Each structure stands twice: as structure tokens, then as C-alpha cells.
Computed example of a mutant assay.
Amino acid sequence: MNPFDLILNLVLGLILGTLGGLFGIGGGLIAIPALGILFGLDQQLAQGTALVMVVPNVVLALWRYHQRNRIDPRHALLLGASSFACAWLASLYAVGLDVSTMRWAFVVFLLVLAAYNLARLRLAPTTGAGGLRHHWGWFAPLGGVSGALGGLFGVGGAVVATPVLTSLFGASQVVAQGLSLSLALPGTAVTLLTYALYGHVNWWMGVPLALGGLLSISWGVRLAHALPERLLRVLFCAFLLLCAGLLGLK
């Protein structure tokens, strides 16, 4: 890798790390279309390479969110365990899919998430109480479904769990993002391992992205706690639509 590419990847990692901390998703959602468009990586290779950045970003972001809003270990363990098992199985399936089919499935996935979040902005209250409306035992199926989708698309599952935690469980946006990161950590780790074993990781690109992300993700976490609840949700919807649009153009 030449110095220009190294600097470019570091700068891209800084941007993605900030976004990952802001939305509690590790940065993978925007990294995947960025790697596909800027560097021409196919869908599986983009997802695997993005995970090199996402895994350490999730670790640091989880710690930062825990410092500001303590995460119950029982909740984290249940979400993490169910996510791990389902992400592993889904990632084994994902590595064998056709590249074009995978890309368009990912675009549809992002559009559905964006539509769901936009509907919540119109129909649901704009603020969460911070507590939980339902027993935390329901985190097991939530972790399983989110982990499976995360393993399939290489995004960690937090992007699925966050809106469910705010709309169905009544958690505030920042509390939901912290809980979602505890779900994402084991899921992203096992998904990265699977993609790496099948040769769908570019480590020369992924490591500089990870370094940039680690330097900037704390900025995003601080910004998430400073922004109004409704604005954070609007930005999250715009972020999903942007990612879908970038991939659709590829």
C-alpha cells in the first residue's frame, strides 16, 4: 500500500468512526458502500473489510456508552449470546451468496430500515423514557434476529436492534444504542472470523480504517449525547437512505 492510500484509509476511518459512535453502529453501514464505490470491492469483500474496522470500534463505543449510561450485564450477556449464535450461522450462508444478489439484498435491507424509522418519527413519541416496557427476557429473540441480519450483511445487528429497543421497549435513543452495541460485539467478531476464513477480508485496507475509527469514535459518542433525541433519529434515517443510495448507484 502506498502512502497516499494509507492516508486516505486513515481519513476515511476517522469519518466512519465518528459516524459509528454517533449512531452506535460501529461505522460498517457507510464503510461497505464506501469501499465498494471508492475502491471497487465486491459486496462480500467490502463487508469483510469493513468488519476489521467495526469490531474495535464497537468495543470502544460500547465502553464509552457504558460510561455515560450503565449497561446491565444481564441484558448485555443475553443480547450478546443470542446474537453470536445467529450471526455465525448467517455469516456462513452469506459468504456463498452471489455478489450482485447480496448487494441488492443489502440495499433493500437499508430501505426497509429507513422506512421503518421514518414511520416512527411520524407515529411514535419523539422521546423515550429510558426504562424498559417489556421484560428483558425478550432480548433473546431480539438478539437472535438482529445477529442473523448482522451476520448476513456484515453490519453487527445494532442497526436493527436500536429502533426496536426505542419503539417496542421504550428505551431512549442513546440507551438503545448502548444496548445494541453489546449485541453487536460478539456478532461482529464471529462474522469477521467467518469472512476472514473464506478470504473475504482485505487486511491492508481494514487495519488503517480501524486505526482511524479508534481515534474518532469517542467524538461521535459525545455528539450523540449532546444532540436532541428527535434530531438524532432524523440523522439516522438520512444516514440509512444515503447508504442505500450509494450502493444502488454502484
Rank of each mutant, 00 (worst) to 15 (best):
P3H: 06
D5H: 13
L8H: 07
L10D: 00
L14W: 08
L16D: 13
L19R: 09
F23M: 11
G28V: 02
G28E: 01
F39E: 11
F39S: 12
D42M: 03
Q43K: 08
Q44W: 02
L45P: 08
L45M: 15
A50C: 07
V58R: 03
V59L: 15
Y65C: 01
I71L: 14
H75W: 03
A76C: 12
L77T: 10
L78G: 06
L79P: 06
A81N: 01
S82N: 09
S83P: 04
A87K: 05
A90S: 14
S91D: 07
Y93M: 14
Y93E: 12
A94R: 04
A94H: 03
W104N: 10
F106G: 04
F109S: 00
F109V: 00
L113E: 05
L113T: 00
N117L: 12
N117W: 03
L118E: 01
T127Q: 14
G128I: 01
A129F: 08
A129H: 13
R133T: 15
R133D: 15
P141T: 10
G143S: 01
G147H: 10
L149E: 01
G151P: 03
L152W: 09
G154C: 05
V155E: 00
A161P: 00
P163E: 04
F169C: 10
L179Y: 03
L179T: 02
L179E: 03
S180V: 12
A184H: 01
A184N: 06
L185E: 06
L185C: 08
P186W: 10
G187Q: 06
V190G: 09
Y195V: 05
A196L: 12
Y198A: 13
Y198I: 07
Y198N: 15
V201T: 05
W204Q: 15
G206T: 07
V207L: 13
L211N: 06
L215G: 07
I217V: 15
S218N: 14
S218Y: 10
L223E: 06
A224V: 11
L227D: 13
L231K: 15
L232G: 12
L232T: 09
R233I: 08
L235H: 11
A238H: 06
L240I: 02
G245I: 07
